[in-house]
């Protein structure tokens, strides 16, 4: 808005105020009605659906499904999209770049859109981007809300004893909450591991990654499994390296 438009706006607003009504009671009564309805709605929900008690924390076993509150699902879903599999999907996109770009865009909106027009049907760009953001957030939230698949049997061929031990550890430690193997498990935030062995990471790398995922994959959001013993780590690593090469899905 240039100076003249600002002056025109101020004059117009002063006129609106002059022809206006007092805040109390003309706006206050509406405010009170809607706020009362909202609070009543919250009480109704609380009575209708009591919040249950979960399972107590046990840092040793990780057979959990890490789910944030629903209003973080859209960020959670980003972790599934950008999981560091290819050059175009670095993890840092989901953990840092996209959220911060969104935040900055939110903060500077009034400094980008400075035109004098306020009627939404005369602001096609604002109309389009507003609706697009709402739909995108709703869509990502919906995708993020899809519960991970139940605990079906993981079926792999050619399992030797060490592979079996690795698979047991894999199930016991809740790796399926973030990874799929042979079609079982959650499709994110971690990559599918059905063919992990074909990536040729090597045993050393796998152990290192399990102990401290950030050391091999900067920006990883996978928890560290440092509490596993050396033997367990090796079993897991052998199992992971065999996936897709030795232990194949039928």
């Amino acid at each position: 808005m240039n100076r003249g438009q600002k002056e025109a706006y101020k004059r117009d607003y002063a006129q609106a105020k002059k022809e206006g009504k007092p805040f109390f009671p003309y706006a206050v009564y509406k405010d009170l009605i809607v706020a009362t309805l909202a609070i009543g709605f919250v009480i109704g929900l609380a009575v209708w659906q009591r919040i249950p008690i979960g399972e107590p924390v046990n840092p040793a076993t990780t057979d959990f499904v890490p789910r944030p509150e629903w209003y973080f699902f859209f960020l959670f879903e980003l972790l599934r999209i950008f999981k560091g599999q290819g050059a175009l999907t670095p993890v840092i996109m989901a953990t840092f770049i996209v959220p911060n770009v969104l935040l900055v865009l939110l903060l500077v909106t009034p400094f980008i859109d400075r035109g004098p027009e306020r009627r939404i049907w005369r602001r096609p760009i604002a109309l389009f981007s507003g609706i697009a953001v709402v739909f995108l957030l709703a869509y990502l939230t919906h995708l993020g809300s899809e519960a991970p698949a139940g605990t079906e049997e993981v079926q792999l061929e050619n399992l030797d004893p060490q592979g079996q031990a690795g698979l047991d550890l894999f199930l016991a430690n809740g790796c399926l909450a973030c990874h799929t193997v042979a079609g079982v498990g959650a499709p994110g935030p971690g990559p599918g591991l059905t063919d992990e062995g074909e990536r040729g990471r090597g045993i050393e790398y796998q152990i290192e990654h399990l102990r401290d995922p950030q050391s091999t994959t900067p920006g990883s959001s996978m928890p560290a499994f440092a509490s596993l013993t050396d033997q367990e780590l090796e079993d897991l690593a052998v199992f992971l390296e065999g996936l897709g090469t030795k232990y194949t899905a039928p």
């Binding site: 979960g54 107590p56 924390v57 209003y71 953990t95 840092f96 935030p189 900067p218 920006g219 990883s220």
Partner: peptide
Amino acid sequence: MFMGLTGYLLVWDQKAYWATVVATNITASA
């Protein structure tokens, strides 16, 4: 939103605990 994030952990159940582990790992990676 930060209120939601910090309050979630206080119930100290498995779901919230591990979700918050992931959240702090993400923070650490910035």
